[in-house]
Design a protein around this nucleic acid. Structure first.
Length: 419
RNA sequence: GUGAGUGUAGCUCAGCAGGUUAGAGUAUCUGGUUGUGGCCCAGAAGGUCGGGGGUUCGAGUCCCCUCACUCACCCCA
């Protein structure tokens, strides 16, 4: 402590004790995503600042105040993955080989926000993008994929669904909403007065009672959708219903990024304080074109790994004890230790997970116990002289003598470990 | 960026209204078993009381500053 160097504010180590949960989440994501023919892509963490400004939107909080940017170099450490993924998709002309493609990527994102429960400056997301189709069935598939991940992890969660319309119908609606808000400006909270100008849709989900009271009878975007958007949203719902998805419509749901159109959704929980959204996303037809690619539609989501891990930890009694060692070798004395050292190497080369200890036998037995080793080899001067080792089964406490001969020991160990 | 709360051993926390060498539980190490783990018993080690300044005969305790953490606002995964 004292004046030692520590991790930066909002940056956290994921310590060995937490790794099991993280791997469980990541492996679950990979498993489910694979069922939808989604392939992995790995992306750089540093990109041209312009990429995020163009995709996320200049007026958003993310771009305005949360990006880690090297001003002189005009590069930014990514605050989200969609823009990078689409950039790569365009750059490698991936649409030429197959215009309908599905990708996922897992990695760290960076936003300079004040840290909070479930919110860090470096956080991790699993990002999924379905490109090349604007069919409502694809939207429903993506929703089903998210639901499947949480179902597999046995995390209870709620799915909220909305449509944000498109460049045809959203601006007119926005006008209607703004004039509605203008009339009640005096009765809204300070934040909402500001939002009425910067992001009027946000006013709709203000948490303050004072504002909520004013919003009775506020125009809902869903009532203003243009015909194609209305049809699309209906189809999404029909498909989702067909899959038996449990969801509910939240007309107040807004997204923080400019590029979203039509379908948007959030998997939310009330178990994480104010960070309700665990996985969220939406459709972004037109974005690929805006980034210089073809007229390829797309929809995707980002799943917050920290938040998912927090939930998983909450809903797990205790992590199943993992055996990470097959054999512990307790050697007594220098000669025995030297002989066991080569034995250990032989066994490791053969694929066993082995370690040896030091100190008194008692102490080494403790080390073996703590490591969860099911088997222990004990080898002291006596055994060495007789050309054998003692092999102890930690569960049954049974011990047997085994010839001190590498292959013989290996065979016997394999027999015992297979039981 | 704004607000509130909390910083004492690796971890969880005591420390009453300033008063000797700052405690417990747990984890760690050693011993009780000259070579045998979990349970039990005993002992040891482990702290610049987040950091700096001030008040005082005397500060873990009171005041100021600072840093960090936590939660909330904003916003978002």
């Amino acid at each position: 402590m004292g004046n030692n160097i520590t991790a930066l504010q909002g940056f956290k180590d994921i310590v060995p004790a937490d790794i099991a949960l993280w791997r469980e989440v990541e492996e679950c994501v990979r498993e489910v995503v694979g069922r939808f023919q989604c392939v992995e892509i790995r992306l750089p963490i540093l990109e041209a600042s312009e990429l995020f400004i163009r995709s996320i939107g200049e007026q958003t909080d993310i771009v305005e105040k949360e990006m880690y940017t090297f001003v002189d170099k005009k590069v930014t450490i990514r605050p989200e993955a969609t823009a990078s993924l689409l950039r790569a998709y365009i750059e490698h002309r991936l649409h030429l080989s197959n215009p309908v493609q599905r990708f996922f990527t897992i990695g760290p994102m960076f936003r300079h926000e004040r840290p909070q429960k479930g919110r860090l400056r470096q956080f991790h997301q699993a990002d999924v993008e379905f490109l090349g189709s604007d069919n409502a069935r694809v939207d429903a598939e993506l929703l089903a994929m998210g639901a499947m991940i949480f179902a597999l992890l046995a995390i209870p969660i709620r799915l909220e669904l909305n449509s944000l319309g498109c460049p045809v119908c959203r601006p007119p609606y926005r006008g209607v909403l703004v004039s509605f808000l203008q009339q009640r400006l005096d009765f809204l909270c300070e934040d909402c007065r500001r939002r009425s100008v910067t992001n009027p849709l946000r006013v709709l989900d203000c948490k303050k009672e004072k504002c909520r009271a004013q919003l009775d009878g506020a125009p809902a975007l869903l009532d203003y959708l243009c015909e194609p958007c209305r049809v699309h949203f209906t189809q999404v719902r029909t498909c989702a219903d067909g899959l038996g998805l449990d969801y509910h419509i939240n007309t107040a749901m807004v997204r923080g990024l400019d590029y979203y159109v039509r379908t948007t959704f959030e998997f939310v929980t009330d178990e994480l304080g104010s960070q309700a959204a665990v996985c969220a996303g939406g459709r972004y037809d037109g974005l690929i074109e805006m980034l210089g690619g073809g007229p390829v539609p797309g929809i995707g989501f980002a799943l917050g790994l920290e938040r998912t891990v927090l939930l998983l930890r909450k809903h797990r009694r205790e992590a199943a004890p993992v055996r990470d060692l097959d054999l512990f070798i307790a050697a007594l004395g220098d000669d025995a230790a030297a002989r066991c050292f080569t034995l250990m190497h032989t066994l490791r080369t053969a694929g066993l997970r082995v370690n040896m200890g030091s100190g008194s036998l008692k102490s080494q037995m403790k080390q073996a116990d703590r490591a969860g080793a099911p088997l222990v080899i004990i080898c002291g001067e006596n055994e060495l002289a007789e050309g054998k080792v003692v092999l102890r089964d930690m569960a049954t406490k049974q011990q047997e003598d085994v010839e001190l001969q590498d292959n013989g020991i290996l065979l016997r160990l394999r027999q015992l470990l297979e039981r």
